[in-house]
Design a protein around this nucleic acid. Structure first.
Lengths: 196, 196, 196, 196
DNA sequence: TATGAATGAGAATTCATTCAT
DNA sequence: CATGAATGAATTCTCATTCAT
């Protein structure tokens, strides 16, 4: 994982993201990236040794954003439900503001033959999951969250439904208000998992 | 939508499915299909007028399998929870026995530039959702399912978590027992949505 | 050269002509012809042994129409100028009513590698030319046509300008009135070649 | 329209011309061009973005040659008849020395589905026509050319017969002496259009 | 850092034609 | 007469990558 990106590298990653946003993963070609930036295709190889490395760095970049979002929320001094609400709404806000991020996260099947890439997506999801689990455990301790289901299962259900929401938003061509949809989802999830 | 497939057409669709299973959507090329069958590439065009038509027919085929599974379950004379359990477990069984089906259903992003294909996937998901909603309504009537959440939302949460399960299974290279995982998911979902 | 065409053969030739009219020579494929008629591609080979034979027959058919038009005009008991006028206007009328004929006659370059086809077009043009020459000779005898230019050269100039007219009409997408344009061309040509 | 061609681009255009000369428009394929030059097919796409662009550039190139020929002749301080003679003979000389040029100019029907290409050919012909008209007007002023026919019609007759000459030369496989044929045509035309 | 030129492997599709039934 | 299935050669074009300058 790259530690610090050069200006050109950042530019490449940002352009890659933009291209994905405009035309999906298929639009992400070396040619498109470089002509968008205004450099030669070969120049790109000065900054990344392969297209896979571009994608890999892109995923690192995305991972940092998402994971740090989760960690920041987790550090807040608010109730577990407040945290869950903020985690979901914040995540959806990130996607709403950067649709390409959603596309990248959802295109997992594409990376199948690139174990490295798959592993990175997997890691992001695991990071999210473990944060959720921590918060749910907290909620169980305070008595707010039901104890008859394992925290992992609860986290799983939350992530599944958030993911499906994003999925449908993406397939719809980003045509509905993701944050609005998120609000009602959050309410549903809270109702489902709160102690009775 | 094709009504009845010729032998060769079925063979092509089956081969396409097999190829997807082995190498993902990227492995689905005209050349691969035809050389797997043992005919010339051009021969394939006697049976389908384009690659898109192959994919489209494949999705029709898949749709019929999935939707009829849901409908069959819905016709059973069992309790709503029984139906939900059978719907999920049956669906996962289909995927467990035919991993490529899972790949096709999950690769939605890929078809972005082919509205027709996307529409077919969408229709399959809608079909599943409406069946779920009917069953949940039934469960609310019998008093088994909680009434403080709309049926649509419940269906959404169920589908999201089922989908995520399949997703992770696919990403893991089909390495864990999907049906086993499904069983605990079903238990979780039932616990979540039953009336208290 | 085929003596008498079967019904199916005529149908094929007519369809070929229609296709050329609609989409140019490139639209003339075995597949297009047969699917337009509603038979299998292979069925076409019962009636013509190759695509070249289709074209060849088509040119025969066209040749008969054009040459007989010229001969008929030549048989009329009218002045040479009357004949020239009728030859040109009649020819343009045929094209105006059957634009594909014009396309076929003008697409000579296409048949370059098919000597047979080239020869047929050449023959049609020679037939026209010799009729023109005969009429011009007549006109010289009656004193109506200038004698300071060989009949062949006059015929050549006439045919060149008629051909260019048709050419431009074809390139314009048949957008102007060919017969109208023909009238002024005829007047010009008569003025040019009459005795002073 | 390209302003300045790179060496490779010129090489490609020249090769394209050569191929057309040897085998007609049908011989102009990306594969033929590239293998003739000795590069990979894909390499060609570094220099032209499509085959249409190759043809388009080729027509530009041809257009410049022809139009500048006409303009140069028009600038000469000679009589109108001298100019007409030089325009025709010079044009035929160009074709005689570069038979492929003739093929390209005459293959107009082929470009029917490529409006751009057709438009270029059209423009070349219009350029030629307007120069002819100017010269004919001049000739009318000096009294050398007959005034009973519009200059446009005269230009049309000239161009039609020149074109037919080139056409027959091309169809004959470039077998006769184009310049010789041109000389007698010029004489004919002059006789036809001079004042009596 | 950057470029221009090139490459090889593929990809989807078209077309005229053949042949057994 | 007609068909369905198949073929092989072409064709245009794309893509990630390399390398000398």
């Amino acid at each position: 994982m790259k530690d610090k990106l050069s200006n050109r590298q950042s530019e490449i990653i940002n352009t890659a993201i933009k291209l994905i946003g405009e035309g999906g993963i298929q639009a992400l070609t070396i040619k498109n990236i470089s002509s968008e930036i205004g450099i030669a295709e070969s120049a790109l190889y000065r900054h990344f040794k392969s297209k896979t490395e571009v994608l890999s760095t892109l995923l690192d970049f995305l991972g940092v954003i998402i994971i740090s979002h989760y960690e920041n929320v987790n550090k807040l001094k608010i109730s577990p439900f407040g945290k869950i609400e903020k985690m979901i709404s914040g995540q959806l806000k990130i996607f709403a503001e950067n649709p390409p991020y959603a596309i990248v996260i959802l295109s997992d099947g594409l990376y199948k033959n690139e174990k490295l890439l798959y592993a990175k997506i997997f890691k992001i999801m695991e990071g999210a999951k473990s944060t959720f689990i921590k918060i749910i455990d907290e909620g169980k301790n305070t008595g707010e969250i039901r104890k008859d289901i394992t925290s992992e299962q609860i986290a799983f259900v939350i992530m599944g439904s958030v993911r499906l929401t994003v999925n449908q938003w993406s397939l719809s061509g980003f045509s509905f208000d993701l944050k609005e949809k998120g609000k009602s989802l959050i309410k549903t999830l809270e109702t489902l998992i709160q102690s009775s």
